[in-house]
Every structure is written in structure tokens, then in C-alpha cells.
């Protein structure tokens, strides 16, 4: 029997969301986080994973609430520490697919150290960083990805700090897979997350989103629709970006898979440690 695309879509939601329990969600109308959640469950479906073999771990912030809505093994941890909790879980349950959802403040400010070290270890976690350039839940303070000169409630005269380039940071720290897309390019985002989940090793997907409620309002960027349109216009593929003249590059968001490399995964290496230790005892 052929299931129509639309029907299949509704089955995905039926299957992976805790629809009867916890909706409506906490996110503002027009927020991009729901799109990321949709992209994740479609990716899980595309990989063909059962609900039971997936764990979703989050930190604190708007993104931190996502695990409530998905019908996986879910854990909403402390601010910035999601990757560290996930590391412990992955160590004892290496067969599980562990997806870690974080915001930019969560992953890169308070959790920045855990982020680079999870990448350095190349432990088999999938980190989804929803980048909206701001602390949304607490009301619009500047984050480690707020652009220089942008305004925030804690940068009333403009931000004088530089934003972290998330993907380059992940690459330099040792991640096996690094990609970026936007919540406008939802299908592509889902495809990248599919690849990330299938990757053995530490995989990072930066999902560029927006916060019209705080950042958009403070910086006069318009409604959610306006901000979404900006993602559509500024989100360019790597190839298109390279063809752009220098002066047109500034505001562009480069989409694509930047890193896809084979590095031994941490829990698999640890199995070798166990074998070595047990051999030593037997000898």
C-alpha cells in the first residue's frame, strides 16, 4: 500500500510526539523551535529508529522544553550541561541514539566547555544547536552568537563582543560531522539531522532560527514572518556563497555539510579498553 506523503507525515507526528499529553507547547507563536522539532522527528523516522532506542536530552532555555513533547526517553537537564549528562548515558547505553538539543547560550556560553570536549572525545552524540542569537526565555540578553553591534536587553548600547562561529568551533574541536541549515530550509535541516544521527561519532547540526519576541523586537527586525523571510534570503549554499562577491557575503548564512570524517568513536574505543583490561587480568 502506498501511503501518501501527507498521510505519512501525520503518521510521523502520531508516532513520535506526545500529542495526547502536553500540547499546546510553551513556545511563542511563530517560533522556529517547533520546526527544528519537526525536522528531528522526521529524521528519526527517516533513519527508521523506534521510539525506544532514542533519547533526547536538553539543557535550559526555550529549546530545553523540547523533550517534553517527543515520545522518546527524555531528559531535561541543567543549564549548559546536557552534553555531560548525555555522555554518561551514552557510555552505559552505547546502543541508544542520543540526541542533544541546545540553544546557543546553553551550548556555547555556560556549556561551551562541555561542547568542545564532547567534540574532542568524538563521543557518539548528535548535538542540535538551535541558534537564535539571543537568550530568549530570560527575555533577550546577548548570547555568544549575538552579532557585534546588535542590541540586547543587556547590550542597550550595542554588543561589543564577537559571535562564536559554531560550525568552525565544532570542526576545530574534533567533531566527526558538522552541518548548518536554517528553520526556513526545513527539509534540508531534516536531511542534515538524518545524516548526523547516522554518523558514528560526535555530530553537530547548527539550526539557525530566530527570536522575534525578543531579539527581533529589540533590533527592529519585524515579525516572525519577516525574520523567516530573512533566513530564506540570507541562507545560501556553500557553492552559492563562494560565487558571491566579497561585499555581498556579510549577512549570509552558509548552509551545508562542512565536516564529514571518519574518526574512531569514543564508546567503541572504550570497548577496546575493557577488552585490554580484561586480557591483562586474565594474563
Amino acid at each position: 500500500m502506498v501511503v501518501k506523503k501527507q498521510e505519512r507525515e501525520s503518521l510521523v507526528h502520531e508516532r513520535y510526539l506526545r500529542h495526547q499529553k502536553k500540547f499546546p507547547h510553551v513556545w511563542c507563536a511563530g517560533c522556529g523551535i517547533g520546526i527544528v522539532m519537526g525536522a528531528i522527528v522526521r529524521a528519526v523516522d527517516a533513519v527508521g529508529l523506534s521510539n525506544d532506542e532514542v533519547a533526547m536530552i536538553s539543557g535550559i532555555g526555550c529549546s530545553g522544553r523540547m523533550p517534553v513533547y517527543v515520545d522518546f526517553n527524555t531528559m531535561h537537564t541543567t543549564h549548559g550541561r546536557a552534553l555531560a549528562f548525555a555522555t554518561g548515558l551514552k557510555m552505559v547505553r552505547p546502543e541508544m541514539k542520543v540526541i542533544v538539543v541546545m540553544g546557543d547560550g546553553d551550548a556555547l556560553a555556560i556549556g561551551g566547555n562541555h561542547f568542545i570536549h564532547a567534540a574532542r572525545r568524538n563521543i557518539g552524540l548528535t548535538a542540535i544547536i538551535i541558534n537564535n542569537n539571543v537568550y530568549g526565555m530570560t527575555g533577550g540578553q546577548y548570547s555568544p552568537t549575538t552579532p557585534t553591534h546588535a542590541y540586547a536587553t543587556t547590550a542597550p548600547y550595542g554588543n561589543i563582543e564577537q559571535p562564536f562561529p559554531i560550525c568552525q568551533l565544532a570542526e576545530a574541536a574534533g567533531a566527526a560531522f558538522v552541518a548548518r541549515s536554517t528553520v526556513y530550509h526545513a527539509r534540508e535541516l531534516s536531511r542534515f539531522i538524518t545524516q548526523a544521527i547516522q554518523k558514528e561519532g560526535f555530530s553537530v547540526v547548527e539550526a539557525v532560527s530566530y527570536c522575534h519576541t525578543t531579539y527581533g523586537r529589540i533590533n527592529k527586525l519585524g515579525s516572525a514572518v519577516e525574520m523567516m523571510r530573512r533566513l530564506k534570503e540570507n541562507g545560501v549554499s556553500q557553492r552559492a556563497f563562494e560565487r558571491l562577491p566579497e561585499e555581498e557575503r556579510a549577512d549570509k548564512i552558509v548552509r551545508g555539510v562542512f565536516v564529514d570524517r571518519d574518526i574512531p568513536e569514543y564508546t567503541q574505543l572504550y570497548d577496546q579498553i575493557i577488552a585490554r583490561a580484561q586480557q591483562a587480568v586474565a594474563a
Binding site: 537537564t77 541543567t78 555531560a84 554518561g88 562541555h114 579498553i273 583490561a277
Partner: peptide, 26 residues
């Protein structure tokens, strides 16, 4: 590892505490 268990040196004590909670949940 001799008894099939696992050890990890984390990046700090915050992460260490987080990791043992994650492992216990596992």
C-alpha cells in the same frame, strides 16, 4: 574496565556530576 565497567575523566566536576546522573538513568 576489568569488571566491564566504565571510567571517564570529564572536563570538570560539573560535567562529572552530570555524567554520573546520565549513567544512572542508563
Amino acid at each position: 574496565p576489568q569488571v566491564g565497567g566504565k571510567f571517564i575523566q570529564m572536563e570538570d566536576e560539573i560535567a562529572s556530576m552530570a555524567a554520573i546522573i546520565g549513567a544512572s538513568v542508563g
